[in-house]
Computed example of a mutant assay.
Amino acid sequence: MRITQGTFSYLPDLSDAEITLQIAYALENDWPCSIEYTDDPHPRNDYWEMWGLPMFDLKDPAGVLLELNECRKTFPSHYIRLTAYDARYGRQTTALSFIVQRPAKEPGFRLTREESADRQVRYTLHAYAADRPEGERY
């Protein structure tokens, strides 16, 4: 199963050259970039761990790619995403976000159906990766 979160998630994984072009696009629009990682990509898990601070002062895509590669070295089997923020609205607004690294094996999710009173049906997603302790999921 392939996690589909963010821009480009239905496309094949982007190469470093394609990632660099997206970083350049974000920086040309004055969108600072941030790198985040997780081993629990549940759709409701919006808050991934940050790799350092958002790079407000970087204007060169090579600097962002350098930080991205350092994060990849440190977390080779985690999900890593790059997020670009648009501050024109006076608050943190995501302008672009996409996954730049995935684990070699993505175990997927289980959908649990629960029937309750008045014919209500509730569905819950459970990540198979979450069955293992944090740090050992992939």
Rank of each mutant, 00 (worst) to 15 (best):
S77I: 06
S116G: 05
N29S: 13
T94P: 04
G90W: 14
W51R: 03
E115I: 08
N45M: 03
A84H: 01
D86C: 12
V100A: 05
D57I: 00
R110N: 08
T93W: 15
R113G: 04
P54A: 05
R88M: 14
L82A: 03
L66A: 12
F75Y: 11
P43Q: 03
A95P: 04
W51A: 02
A87N: 15
T83D: 04
P32F: 07
R88H: 11
A104S: 13
I80H: 03
P43W: 10
S97W: 02
L58M: 07
F98H: 05
A87Y: 15
H78R: 07
S34H: 07
S97I: 04
E114Q: 12
R91K: 15
A104R: 13
L66N: 09
M50G: 11
T112S: 13
A95N: 00
K73Q: 09
R102S: 12
D30K: 14
H78T: 05
P43T: 04
G52N: 05
P41D: 01
T83C: 06
S116E: 12
D30I: 01
L68V: 01
L53C: 08
K105Q: 15
F109L: 12
P43V: 07
F75H: 08
A117F: 12
F98L: 09
S116M: 04
S34Q: 11
F75L: 07
E70M: 00
F75R: 07
P32E: 03
L66H: 10
Q101D: 01
L96H: 02
G90R: 13
T74I: 06
D57H: 11
T93I: 14
K73D: 05
G108A: 11
N45K: 08
Y47T: 04
L111E: 06
Y85D: 03
E70S: 00
I80M: 03
P76Q: 07
R88A: 13
Y47H: 08
C33I: 03
E114R: 12
D60G: 00
I35L: 08
A117P: 02
D30Y: 10
D40E: 09
T83Q: 03
Q92G: 06
E36Q: 11
D86W: 09
H42E: 05
R88S: 15
E49W: 10
V100Q: 03
G90I: 13
P61Q: 05
A95D: 03
N45P: 05
L68W: 04
F75W: 10
